[in-house]
Design a protein around this nucleic acid. Structure first.
Lengths: 354, 354
DNA sequence: TTGAAAGCGCTACCAT
DNA sequence: ATGGTAGCGCTTTCAA
């Protein structure tokens, strides 16, 4: 068996407390005794105080749980998520706190298990949408948590860091509308659950299943309504994942259709890049250029000349972690709304035809 | 105080064991009683069994520690690291295991603390070089671990997944040598510790401080030696970080010099992209094109037309995690060497001048 | 400066 | 099907 603190104590002939002090409170015993104890520990192969036991006794863990809606690997695959995490990790690092990355299983029954089993001091919930059951599990854990998506049922206790999704979306859409576009398609991920890629019927933008998507679609709708394009005249496209491939697959049908849109506004850069891919693959099918916009302003967006809305990804992560690790005295300061910028590049231009 | 299992037991009038069973072994009690217990728990606001206490009792944690030499945020910033982690996380996910990301502090004294305090079942050591003290701390923990950099003192117990660094490096260098290049610069990150960006004197490739760099420089040297270029004739460039900016800063001096090299071989794609950046920034300073090569084959490499060595990043991560989570019965199978490919693109060409 | 005692919250064995 | 008992390995008063 692995040696324990008790074994070391026995070997040296002191009490457990003293051995414990040798590790955790060096000032509580003579240097000589401490050396003697540490030497004995080394000799016995004692690996130092067991972290789990220590946590149990001390009552805190020294780790933050980072929860993802999608599979965990998404965290390392989606550019925006990666930058968000970089921000979180920077803060965690400063606090000597670990980051426990946790996938949120699609199976509801398993969610509770994951949340309940996590040895952490708080949760950073990345991108949980209307998965209320998930948030309920987190709440039930009784630990502090911070979300990045707006929630209808947010209480004063809830910590949040995000952007004004609707206003941000309105800004790109207004830009596109000002360029004269009237034949419009909006593209989102999982606009409704379990729907195939491509166009779908959405009675109202607020029917979208994910709050972030909801906010963005609503903002898009706002701007076009102001330009005289009513909601029913707008095509909504569903992507089955937040990836280039899924974005491309979602637009493909309308591109091949009779009256393709003159502009496609995507709810993320990744999706928008997929649209660009599809356009490139389709060749000069529609006789006019199609204006495409994204959301987030990831690194690839600049290279692709994508018009988009910039939101401060790392900052968002940094602040989320700070909300947990350096809780504001005034709970009202636990609700942060960050600024966004419209970034106009070459993927949008005046409507030119047909 | 937060309610405990005991409180629930008292409220229902059963023993703690029964409450525990209600959570962990539903088949051990009647459905009716279980419901009754769970209801009471909900009513009391009992968050479910405390994960720390459970881990202590059960003797395992359900988490893997992922250790980075550099700061933690590097994990989310370096493209190769990100893909490696994606692989690790995929496997962890399959096992319902969490990933505890841990920065390895530069301060040696703190390293032990970090390693000793981590509540994990094993360590995946990403890119620890000659930081022996770090590995020693890990070994002392007595938990299984896997490394991705070759180690001189590796024992039969050690699990490892990597590539043949030297042979891989030799393959790119041979390609460049075959193109006629003889004025050669090699670029690595922290070739020697604490050295300024730019050229440095390295008596022998095996003097490089990091084993990975050592292997790659040695491979480069092999190929050029075979082509008649002796080691002392080769310029070694030091970058102070593994980033584009650092790569650019490291080559800048020689680009501005009297007799710039006709080729620069970098130890990573990120560094190589930095060289390309510097070349672009410098304009047509040397009157001939400079051939540049990278290492890893990250996504950006393809877009930039970078000639490089491809190594299976995600696979590496996946296998590393599997080595921990599905330990091979035969310890000899704990040492994996993955294949690499030379990918020739447009960044290399025949020597043309001066 | 050191040690004894009292748990932290839970699970697993073995009875009943 | 349920409960009693005995710790998991540690830290932290408090008293000596």
């Amino acid at each position: 068996m692995k040696p324990t603190l008790q074994d070391v104590a026995d070997a040296v002939g002191v009490s457990r407390s003293t051995v414990s002090n040798a590790y955790s409170r060096p000032d509580q015993l003579s240097a000589a005794l401490r050396t003697k104890i540490l030497d004995a520990a080394r000799r016995l192969g004692y690996p130092g105080p067991n972290p789990t036991a220590r946590s149990l006794r001390r009552g805190y863990v020294g780790a933050l749980g980072v929860l993802f809606t999608s599979e965990l690997s998404y965290a390392f695959t989606d550019p925006f998520a990666v930058r968000f995490l970089a921000g979180v990790s920077r803060t965690a690092e400063r606090h000597g706190t670990g980051l426990l990355l946790m996938p949120l299983p699609a199976d509801r029954a398993q969610v509770r298990g994951v949340v309940e089993n996590a040895a952490v001091d708080g949760f950073c919930v990345y991108c949980v949408g209307d998965e209320d059951w998930a948030l309920r599990a987190i709440r039930d854990r009784g630990l502090p948590y911070v979300t990045t998506a707006p929630r209808a049922d947010a209480g004063p206790e809830d910590r949040y860091v995000g952007i004004d999704e609707r206003a941000a979306a309105r800004s790109v859409a207004a830009h596109v509308a000002a360029l004269g576009h009237r034949r419009v398609a909006l593209l989102g991920e999982t606009v409704l659950p379990g729907v195939a890629p491509g166009p779908l019927r959405l009675a109202d933008p607020t029917d979208a299943s994910h709050p972030t998507t909801r906010g963005r679609l609503t903002g898009f709708a706002d701007a076009f309504a102001a330009a005289g394009v009513a909601w029913p005249a707008i095509t909504v496209l569903n992507a089955t994942a937040n990836s280039r491939a899924a974005g491309a697959a979602a637009v493909a049908p309308v591109l091949a259709g009779d009256a393709p849109p003159t502009t496609v506004l995507a709810c993320s850069d990744v999706l928008a890049l997929g649209v660009l891919d599809a356009l490139a693959a389709a060749g000069p099918r529609p006789a006019y250029p199609i204006s495409v916009t994204g959301f987030d302003d990831i690194a690839e967006a600049a290279a692709a000349g994508l018009t988009t809305v910039r939101q401060p990804a790392e900052e968002k992560g940094r602040l989320a972690a700070e909300l947990l690790l350096e809780p504001p005295v005034d709970p009202a300061e636990g609700h942060l709304v960050l600024p966004t910028d419209l970034v106009v590049r070459t993927s949008t231009g005046p409507v030119s035809g047909s």
